[in-house]
Design a protein around this nucleic acid. Structure first.
Lengths: 184, 184
DNA sequence: ACCTGAACACCGTTCAAGT
DNA sequence: ACCTGAACACCGTTCAAGT
């Protein structure tokens, strides 16, 4: 049988692109190079993705699905730690998921995957009957761990990637709370 | 006098680039086009910036300086609200400041500007004598407002850009705290 | 010192053509 | 249906040359 038809070019191209992103960052990715590495001509991928953004959106959606699964395997504060760990383990994928200007309304699969991730958080808060407004609590918790992960990745807390720092910051929410609400 | 020498090409190019970014996003920016709009040839800017990243770093540093000034004009929870307001008012600039893969170690001016912003937060917490560990508290507060701003920009809280939502999420830190620390 | 114009090695995307 | 090769209009960057 001929190898003219690749068989699963879509998956092969995505895998190559993922490898490139994790190695050199989003800026280091080109569709042409990804196609080359998958062993096809530079525009064969256009049979599977209408354009570059759609390919990135698929990689991002993949990331959201993995993150969601990771979160669902934990609960409470460990959920927050898992979130940060995910970001630190695959920084470029994480940046792609959030940093890129992928307009979610144009990529339904991406939107759906992202909402599933949020859902995992909300339902965890819902299980705790003591929470009056689980969605708002989830929004605050997500904000905290997301900001922490992002700022760590960007190097804004120099030399502080250790688990203990992460734990103490997540724990320090109570701390910050004590002062922030004070209004002059 | 001849107009051969632009006079302040550096500022003109930065202004053109800023306008392009705020209009079309980072992806919509090209050095060549910015130079065109400043009325010079496509590589005149190379007299002022060694490469594209350095130009982006300068725009980002500018953003950090403005954000720092904005924060210093407020205190307490209003500081957090000002942070989110800044992000929502100039989303693409905010994304550039954080989202781009600008390696801070290569751009000292950027690093300095970013640290000044963090400094504004820390010193605000330091003024409150009741805080045992102001740096950790500032890290938590920054994480929260940064994550909130970022997730709002990305559309993860659909239809929730109102000031009241922002206030309630910032206020809800106490809420989230009550559950996150619980360990199974 | 500051700017130009041509050139190089890339992009993403399109389109006619091949199997 | 799936892939190729040539072509188009762009990039960022470099370099010799002009004023």
């Amino acid at each position: 049988m001929s190898t003219y038809h690749h068989g699963d070019l879509r998956a092969a191209v995505l895998a190559a692109a993922a490898k490139m992103i994790e190695k050199e960052g989003l800026a280091g990715l080109s569709l042409r190079e990804a196609a080359r590495r998958a062993g096809v001509s530079h525009n064969a991928p256009y049979r599977h993705f209408p354009d570059r953004d759609s390919q990135l959106a698929e990689l991002a959606a993949e990331g959201f699905r993995r993150l969601g699964a990771e979160l669902e395997a934990h609960s409470g504060r460990e959920m927050g730690e898992a979130y940060v760990r995910f970001a630190l383990a695959q920084p470029e994928r994480f940046r792609l998921m959030f940093g890129a200007q992928l307009r979610h309304e144009r990529h339904p699969a991406l939107r759906e995957a992202a909402q599933q991730t949020y859902g995992a958080l909300v339902s965890a808060f819902r299980k705790d009957g003591a929470i009056a407004d689980p969605e708002k609590a989830a929004a605050a918790a997500w904000s905290l761990v997301h900001g922490l992960a992002h700022l760590l990745l960007d190097g804004h807390f120099p030399g502080q990637k250790s688990e203990t720092f992460v734990r103490s910051v997540i724990g320090a929410v109570r701390f910050a709370t004590a002062t922030i609400p004070a209004r002059p």
